[in-house]
Amino acid sequence: MTLLILFSGKGLQAQKTFRIGYVDMEYILQNVPQYQEASSQLDSRVQEWRSEVEAKKRDIEQMKSRLENERALLTRELIEEREEEIAYQEEQALDYQQKRFGPNGDYLIQKKQLVRPIQDQVFTAVREISENRNLDMVFDRTADTGMLYAAEEHDISDQVLRSINRAANRRQIDSRQERQELEIAEERTVEEDEKINEEAQIIQDKQTAREAILAERQRQRDSIKAAKQQELEERRAKIIEERQRRMDSIRNLRKQKDTIN
């Protein structure tokens, strides 16, 4: 996006062109594995906190219900004592809810702690990319910036994400060869990466199709082999059965001969 700013004075008009880019912070966060893993852990913790809040509310409702059912049987002092206990439990439940979900609660604090390292990486990447592309300003389209329109060609979110992933890869490489391969990859543009990914996907699709064909052939061979094995076992069983029948017949004839003798 190009922003044209006009400066005027004493009848003269000067023009300055600002080059502006933007990022989609939500998109970046959704594609950073470390953030997703930590976010999932936080979601599990939040679910536990909500369950605890709901349990406290149910306990209070049960206390109120018992009081109403037993009110006619209780003295005034006991009723006041029960009401004070309910009020105390309600206050404790509210304090707990504020501690977990209030403006200064654990949820917002841990959420900020979760996002802050990624934000630092984004700011570093944005500064590097802005210098390379001569951008004067970069906005976050998910923030309250008043951005109503932005051409997709000025979206540098993918470049920021690539920069973050590259930084993570740099920390993981050990050998000189891996370092050289990473340097070559870092010199590629987004378009070149997309082309490489498309070619890799085509190769992967062909490999998947080839594996499916080989698997089907193996299944057919296994099926034929199993059929032959079953036929062999049935034939063997018939031979054994026939042999046993003959032996039984000979044994019966011998018995009959012994009886006659």
Rank of each mutant, 00 (worst) to 15 (best):
residue 14 A to W: 15
residue 53 V to Y: 05
residue 103 P to D: 03
residue 20 I to K: 00
residue 253 L to D: 11
residue 259 T to G: 05
residue 181 E to I: 05
residue 138 V to M: 01
residue 233 E to M: 07
residue 89 Q to M: 14
residue 63 M to L: 11
residue 146 G to N: 07
residue 93 A to R: 02
residue 21 G to E: 01
residue 246 R to F: 12
residue 241 E to C: 04
residue 149 Y to V: 03
residue 74 L to N: 02
residue 179 R to K: 15
residue 136 D to L: 05
residue 165 N to F: 09
residue 89 Q to I: 04
residue 153 E to C: 04
residue 24 D to K: 07
residue 168 A to L: 14
residue 150 A to V: 05
residue 180 Q to L: 15
residue 236 R to A: 12
residue 169 N to G: 10
residue 102 G to Y: 00
residue 54 E to C: 02
residue 131 E to V: 08
residue 68 E to M: 03
residue 122 V to E: 00
residue 111 K to P: 03
residue 75 T to A: 02
residue 179 R to V: 06
residue 140 D to C: 01
residue 46 V to G: 03
residue 53 V to N: 04
residue 244 Q to W: 12
residue 33 P to L: 02
residue 245 R to N: 07
residue 171 R to N: 10
residue 6 L to W: 07
residue 88 Y to S: 10
residue 56 K to Q: 08
residue 39 S to P: 03
residue 131 E to W: 04
residue 251 R to A: 11
residue 209 A to F: 05
residue 166 R to Q: 08
residue 166 R to F: 14
residue 255 K to N: 10
residue 188 R to Q: 13
residue 77 E to M: 04
residue 210 R to Y: 11
residue 167 A to L: 08
residue 127 R to M: 09
residue 175 S to F: 02
residue 244 Q to P: 04
residue 138 V to T: 00
residue 12 L to R: 15
residue 154 H to A: 10
residue 181 E to S: 13
residue 60 I to H: 01
residue 165 N to M: 14
residue 199 E to Y: 09
residue 117 P to C: 05
residue 48 E to I: 08
residue 164 I to E: 00
